[in-house]
Design a protein around this nucleic acid. Structure first.
Lengths: 271, 271
DNA sequence: CAAATAGTGTCTCTAAGACAATATCAC
DNA sequence: GTGATATTGTCTTAGAGACACTATTTG
């Protein structure tokens, strides 16, 4: 058989068993919490969208939004579609963070998951509104190394606190992956996916390519700094932060007035 | 239905159409070319394993080694298995670099590819031997930006020269992907996969976590430097390179003798 | 001794961290 | 003026690049 058309017509992909393929999305946003004192700047929190599962398996546990890859779309388009179906907004940015394909990871069968991080901008958040059903909530995220070298991933929303425990495993190319020790109320292997997503987000935030996506078109440098500090869980001296981002931003002639203190100049992202 | 066992027994993944899933591997090694002059150090070249396709589609064109995901293995295990079947050695390290899932990327049908970079160590290369059939060859790699902003990926082996042309596309999170303008003798979308793999390799080489994998257990600092220079396509002053890697290596008491010049101390990777 | 590489010392320059000081608004 | 944040200046320090110099082997 030397003719390509003939060959393709006789080709049977169906002869091999195939897995189901999903995309799961860790969608992050920054929430601004009104502070108690009367004219202080608001505090920021990093939040992650979780969905409470209505059916088996892992019924009533919390999971990342996601769903099955459909014919005719790329995996990334699938991820975008799933996050849109859940939140009704388009994320500002999206990035793959790993493939989770352990054969036993899903009790329903052979399902491999493609994990994505996405950023929901402050503008979009307003469109989402707060009228969500109780089965989709933005959880407050914290992820820290404990004394014994393990990692605690804590997700809180109202009275609900999910606390997963993971072990970091270094693999080749200096990469780190996370193995679940206690999934702490999260469905499937989603604790490990969230840990990977958060690590990826922090890595990308270092080079100032990501933090802008959390903010509106125009923003103050202090707001930008708070985003960076919130994601990285560090604190930075204002003078140094301003110097570091100076190459990435452009002045506007506008100011944020009426905050109870000196107005801050608004900036835009450069180019 | 509130019983999990019952639910799972009735669950039908087969009701949804599923893609075929493959892993394709860009396996790199460093080759040492004997230099003409009588006692100079050998020159290094970065090489990539390609397989000439024996059947349709893309018959007689060159492709990355790879194959279909089998039930019971992870995608990464699939990649390792494929590279082992082709070379008969285990790569020192392996890392995912992307998922390629455009619906039209493979004329055989709905096939999504998981791309991996792997490093074949110098020790392993000896085991591979040179008795390969002509359908598996290590191509010399070069990947550069041209004057008009496009990227040229050139792969050479003997008289064979493959020259693909790509356009860089910046996506969110500051990531770059490559779109094929001219696939230049490479099968499928493998030119774009190779470009992504090489970019990932260069990114990782920056933090000195990868370059050791190309070398034997014990190595001279000059050999390590040549690996770094070959991958990054730059040249570094010896004094500075030594200072930069000093935290990652440990002295041994051994020396590389008989090279026609001052013997170099052998080092090992730290920890 | 000559060729070639191995290895060290140090000057400079840049960028990040620390800290002090000044500016400007709302009330 | 007071409280709070905005913004700038500069000292210090760590690390990378450049360059000059010394050391050690083989042939």
């Amino acid at each position: 058989m030397d003719n390509e058309k003939e060959f393709l017509a006789g080709y049977r992909l169906e002869d091999y068993e195939r897995p189901s393929v999903t995309a799961d999305v860790a969608a992050f946003r920054i929430s601004t919490e009104e502070s108690e004192s009367y004219r202080k700047n608001p505090e920021n929190k990093l939040r992650l969208l979780l969905i409470r599962r209505g059916g088996h398996p892992f019924k009533d546990m919390w999971a990342l939004p996601g769903g099955f890859l459909q014919k005719g779309e790329t995996v990334e388009q699938c991820a975008l579609r799933e996050i849109f179906e859940e939140t009704n907004v388009q994320p500002v940015s999206i990035m793959p963070v790993g493939v989770f394909s352990e054969p036993e990871r899903d009790p329903r069968g052979w399902i491999i998951s493609h994990a994505y991080v996405s950023v929901i901008g402050e503008d979009s958040v307003k469109q989402i509104g707060q009228d969500d059903a109780a089965d989709a909530q933005w959880f407050c995220v914290s992820f820290d190394c404990t004394e014994n070298g393990e990692y605690a991933l804590t997700l809180t929303h109202g009275d609900t606190e999910l606390r997963a425990v993971l072990a970091a495993e270094r693999s080749s190319f200096g990469r780190t992956s996370y193995r679940i020790l206690d999934r702490g109320g999260l469905a499937f292997d989603h604790a490990a996916i969230i840990a990977a997503a958060l690590s990826a987000l922090r890595t990308e935030a270092k080079n100032y390519d990501t933090i802008f996506d959390f903010l509106p078109e125009k923003f103050t440098l202090t707001a930008l700094q708070k985003v960076q500090e919130t994601i990285m869980n560090v604190s930075i001296l204002p003078a140094n932060f301003r110097r570091m981002v100076s190459g990435y931003v452009e002045e506007t002639d506008e100011f944020a007035r009426g905050e109870g203190h000196r107005p801050a100049r608004l900036y835009t992202r450069k180019k």
